[in-house]
Every structure is written in structure tokens, then in C-alpha cells.
């Protein structure tokens, strides 16, 4: 009954389709680890089924698990333990090197802190990227870094923008390098200055989501009036503040007032612009109100605001 012949095939030449099926269920960290086991496994990990037009999503990954990467942590001989962010960078590099530049959407982890090197590292490996979701705090990015990355992302069409401190540079770089850019979700406040930056650098914007954020009334009027190609404007649950019409009082506008605000002196509303808003005074509206009147709360983008959107393309 014993098989006397030497075994012909073992795990390092397991049938390719079976490997694909097994690897399909692994998370990104385990997936990246198996890619380093042997050459046939590595080849399977590079199959387009995993990458072609796919989303590279770090949003559900615990950063600890990424930083605790088994494949990066047993290198004791080197002495110093690499820092968590170094490990995360190494993981990104390892994983994206398998993709052959084929992924179309990259979602950073909400809490991930990134610098120029991280952004450029990702950009260099995702030449066909169409959509990018930035993490909450990306304050370590510089103007040069942002420009360098956007130069590599010429095909970028859609972005979730989170941090006002770098927002101007990003919008400028996109205006300069990404000709097909058309969708923007903003999760930081929209004031008049930023609205003017959008009008100046992204005049061809088609879709803009300002869902659940603080928006100045004047900024709202500016973008609706001046972004001539704008087709969809989402202001659901937004906290809109501005002077009353007689110019005497600051007031908080409800969702019901938005058409009126935009309709008064708007030459776009009658045309192609579709306004997305909620019923007003819903649970989310109240939450947003609370965030904006508690001084400590409003500074930080909320993960649920970052993830959610009434525009399907912009949520995940």
C-alpha cells in the first residue's frame, strides 16, 4: 500500500489554480508573507486576479498587526528593532511590489501617519491609480512630496481629502498633473479660501462631497456658482454657517435652507447640478452639530465621516 515512487509534486509546485484559491482568503499581511516563501508562490501572488483594477484597502487592517509583521520582525541580527512606521513602510513596499502597478484604488488606514517617502513609495507602485483615500493625519507631507506623487498619478480621478494643512498643495498638484480628475470628497472644513483654491485648481470638478463637515455658507455659494462642470454636490448632514441675509447675525443653516442659499444668486442650480442632502435634523445631522459646537471634537475628522458617503463611489 505504501507508495514506493518518489513523490512527484509537493507544496512548492502545487497547482497554480489551487494556490490562487488558497491565497484568496488571506489578509494582506499573510498574503505578503506567503509571497516570500518560494518562487512559485511568489508568482501566484503576482497574478492579476489579485491586483488588476483592485482596491488596496488598509482601512480595516489593525495597524498593530501591520506593524507586527511577522516577516519583518524576526530579523534580530540587525540589532535595533525597526520602528512601527518603518515596518509599515516595508510592508507596503513588499505588498505593492507584487501588484505590478495594477491596482486602481488605494485606501490608507484612517490612523496611519504618512510622510513624503510613504506617499511617493505608493505612487511609484500604483501608476494606474484612479482613486486615492488619504489618512486622517497626513501633516508630514510637503509640497514637493505631494507634487512628486501627483506627477506619478497622472490618471487620478478621485480623492478623499482629509487634512486642511496640506489640502491647498494637494489641490494645486492635482490641478497641474491629473487631467482627468473629477471627484472630490472633503472631510476637513470648507472655508472661502479653500473654496477659491478648488475653483482655481480644479475648475473641471464634476462631483464634490461635503457630507457631514463644517461648510461656510459663502464657500458653498462660491463652489456652486463657479465650478461650471459640477454635476453632483453632496451636502448631506453638513453644518452650514454664515451671516443671515441682512448681514447682522451668524447663523447655522439647516439642510432645508440649502436650495434657497444656492438658489438666490446661482446660475448653475437650474442647469445640471444635482444637490444631494438629507431630510435635515436626522441623527447624523445632530452628531455633526455636536462635533462642531464642542470645541475639542471638531478638529479631528471622524472615521465614520471618512468612510461614509451618499455617493457610492466615495464610500467604502
Amino acid at each position: 500500500m505504501e507508495n514506493k515512487k518518489p513523490p512527484m509534486r509537493y507544496w512548492n509546485n502545487m497547482s497554480y489554480d489551487i494556490l490562487l484559491k488558497i491565497f484568496m482568503t488571506l489578509n494582506m499581511v499573510d498574503f505578503t508573507t506567503v509571497s516570500l516563501v518560494c518562487s512559485s508562490w511568489r508568482k501566484a501572488c503576482q497574478d492579476s486576479v489579485f491586483w488588476d483594477g483592485k482596491v488596496f484597502d488598509l482601512s480595516d487592517m489593525s495597524l498593530c498587526s501591520a506593524a507586527n509583521l511577522s516577516f519583518a520582525s524576526n530579523n534580530d541580527s540587525s540589532g535595533d528593532e525597526p520602528s512601527n512606521s518603518t515596518r509599515l513602510t516595508q510592508f507596503l513596499k513588499c505588498a505593492l511590489d507584487l501588484s505590478c502597478g495594477k491596482i486602481s484604488c488605494f485606501i490608507f488606514n484612517f490612523l496611519q501617519s504618512i510622510n513624503d517617502d510613504d506617499l511617493i513609495l505608493v505612487a511609484e507602485r500604483t501608476a494606474n491609480l484612479k482613486r486615492l483615500v488619504l489618512p486622517r493625519s497626513n501633516i508630514q507631507l510637503s509640497k514637493t512630496g505631494v507634487h512628486k506623487a501627483m506627477q506619478l498619478w497622472k490618471g487620478l480621478e478621485s480623492l478623499t481629502l482629509t487634512d486642511i494643512s496640506i489640502a491647498y498643495d494637494i489641490v494645486e498638484a492635482i490641478g497641474e498633473h491629473c487631467n482627468n480628475f473629477s471627484e472630490l470628497k472633503v472631510t476637513c472644513d470648507l472655508g472661502v479660501n479653500f473654496a477659491n483654491a478648488l475653483i482655481k485648481h480644479l475648475p473641471k470638478l464634476k462631483i464634490l462631497s461635503l457630507q457631514s463637515i463644517l461648510v461656510s455658507k459663502n464657500a458653498l455659494v462660491l463652489v456652486a456658482n463657479n465650478l461650471k462642470d459640477l454635476k453632483i454636490l453632496n451636502v448631506s448632514h453638513s453644518f452650514i454657517v454664515g451671516l443671515t441675509d441682512d448681514g447682522t447675525n451668524m447663523t447655522i443653516y439647516s439642510q432645508h435652507d440649502v436650495p434657497k442659499i444656492l438658489g438666490n444668486n446661482n446660475n448653475n442650480m437650474s442647469g445640471i447640478l444635482t444637490l444631494i442632502r438629507c431630510e435635515g435634523n436626522c441623527g447624523m445631522c445632530l452628531k455633526v452639530l455636536q462635533w462642531n459646537i464642542c470645541t475639542e471634537e471638531w478638529k479631528n475628522t471622524k472615521e465614520e465621516v471618512w468612510r461614509d458617503d451618499k455617493i457610492a463611489n466615495l464610500r467604502f
Binding site: W11, N12, K21, T25, N27, V34, L36, V37, W41, R42
Partner: peptide, 30 residues
């Protein structure tokens, strides 16, 4: 097939490269 694939995948989870090589008796052939 599904059961066996899942079993194999579970054996890879949370492992290092060298642990996986040991479990699956794979020689580093790079």
C-alpha cells in the same frame, strides 16, 4: 475543496516565512 483550501490558508495565518516553509516542507528556491 473549499474545506481543504481553508485549512491550508489557516495554517499560513500569522506565520513567518520560515515557519510556513517548515509547515509545508518547502525549500527556499529563490
Amino acid at each position: 475543496y473549499d474545506l481543504a483550501c481553508q485549512t491550508a490558508a489557516d495554517l499560513m495565518k500569522g506565520m513567518t516565512v520560515s515557519q510556513i516553509r517548515k509547515i509545508f516542507h518547502i525549500k527556499n528556491d529563490f
